[in-house]
Design a protein around this nucleic acid. Structure first.
Length: 287
DNA sequence: CGGGACTCCTGAGGGC
DNA sequence: TGCCCTCAGGAGTCCC
């Protein structure tokens, strides 16, 4: 689920459920994630009330009154889901039965009337605890570029940053220090909509292309959030619902198909760069 | 330093 | 059915 829109959806759902609620207990089911989960960290949030739920780039922050923070990153396959204690048979004994365990569950946060569970198939995600002092300076959040929907993500910003940038524009847009929150799907979509080749070198974008690209990115991200994000391979959000933006994909995953632009006779191609695939129409995204 | 490749991990899907 | 291969929405690290 993990680009900006999907994380934003996860954050809103979390906020609806756990804001101003007290964490009664935490159980580490499987500590092996990107960073090993330490029990002593998680005991520190027991009996604390969630003061704020925020999203920064693809990170979710749970904040507490004493200014400690839990930082969550979903990686590729991380997801947070709720389990109501009353809905599911008579078992109200807090995760006592093995049968409740789902494969790849890692952490369970116990609240009064429900449990919140972090599940992650590939273990690329992480959950980290920061105390008051460390929370002021979370390394993961240092050096992030502007959010795509912010005013700072502007033409002036592009002109300044791209001037001497030799990397292909696709790589630049994936770089979280340039813009925070985009990933492979939305970068591919934005480049297609603005008719820019992913391989075009960043400094070679002209003024009109930059304007189009910024506009496309903002539009796509807004629309995707509105539609609940994208759901691929049946991942779903914490309320069990699926996003529907994947139906809007115009280029991602469409290799071999005809370009959707009526006047264009192009056939969509897929290439690899830095171990990531990218998709483009060789006709309307000519270099 | 910038840029690219490799790495962590599990599962799905295709070819044979 | 099973085996082997490739690929998956991220990002930290290493190497040139």
């Amino acid at each position: 689920m993990p680009e900006l829109p999907e994380v934003e959806i996860a954050k809103r759902s979390l906020s609806n459920h756990i804001l101003n609620k007290k964490i009664l207990d935490v159980t580490i089911i499987n500590p092996k994630l990107r960073y090993f989960l330490k029990k002593k960290d998680f005991t520190k949030i027991i009996n604390k009330t969630v003061n704020a739920v925020e999203r920064v780039s693809k990170y979710i922050l749970l904040k507490f009154a004493d200014q400690s923070v839990v930082l969550i990153h979903l990686g590729m396959t991380g997801r947070l889901y709720f389990k109501s204690k009353n809905s599911n048979n008579k078992d109200t004994s807090f995760y006592s039965k093995q049968s409740i365990l789902k494969k790849h569950d890692h952490v369970l946060f116990k609240f009064k009337n429900f449990n919140l569970i972090y599940n992650d198939i590939r273990k690329f995600g992480f959950i980290k605890y920061y105390n008051f002092l460390d929370s002021k300076n979370i390394s993961h959040l240092n050096g992030l570029g502007p959010e795509p929907l912010s005013k700072n993500f502007s033409k002036d910003y592009f002109l300044k940053k791209l001037k001497n940038k030799k990397a292909p524009i696709k790589n630049t847009l994936m770089d979280q220090r340039f813009v925070a929150g985009l990933g492979n799907i939305y970068v591919n979509e934005a480049l297609f909509i603005s008719k820019i080749s992913p391989k075009k070198l960043s400094f070679k974008l002209n003024s009109k292309e930059i304007t189009n690209l910024i506009h496309s990115i903002k539009k796509i991200i807004k629309k995707s959030i509105k539609m609940g994000g994208s759901t691929i391979k049946n991942y779903h959000n914490s309320e069990g619902r699926q996003g529907s933006y994947q139906a809007e994909f115009k280029i991602y995953g469409r290799q071999g198909q005809k370009c959707i632009r009526r006047a264009c006779k192009g056939v969509i191609r897929r290439n690899m760069s830095s171990n990531r695939s990218f998709f483009f129409c060789p006709i309307c995204q000519r270099i």
